[in-house]
Amino acid sequence: MTRNTSFSFRLYVAGNTHNSAQAIANLAALCRTHLPGRHKIDVIDVFRNPKRALADGVFMTPTLVKLAPLPVQKIVGTLSQTETVLQVLGLEAAIA
């Protein structure tokens, strides 16, 4: 993975709930720090778009889906444990 790889995220949230707001904030902060200028975030509110949640099989909110680069990965939760998130995204080297 090069330093120029572009990341594409989809974040499923449930309206303005506490957990969802936290997840949005945490993801934004993480991208700012580790992926400046090479990320795309698509936020889907399952309250507004329940059929989408059903079709995509998203039952726990918030859920982050990393669409690119492959493989597709899912992280459930507020993304408050930054280390875990970075590990899953293959960005742990960035911390060091």
Binding site: Y12, A14, G15, T17, N19, S20, Q22, A23, N26, V46, F47, P50, K51, A53, L54, V58, F59, M60, T61, P62, T63, Q73, K74, I75, V76, G77, T78, L79, S80, Q81, T84, V85, V88
Partner: peptide, 15 residues
């Protein structure tokens, strides 16, 4: 499944 932080069943209930 990777879990990081708290979550809820809001998505499921909406679906």
């Amino acid at each position: 499944l990777v879990r990081s932080g708290d979550f809820d069943l809001g998505g499921m209930l909406a679906a």
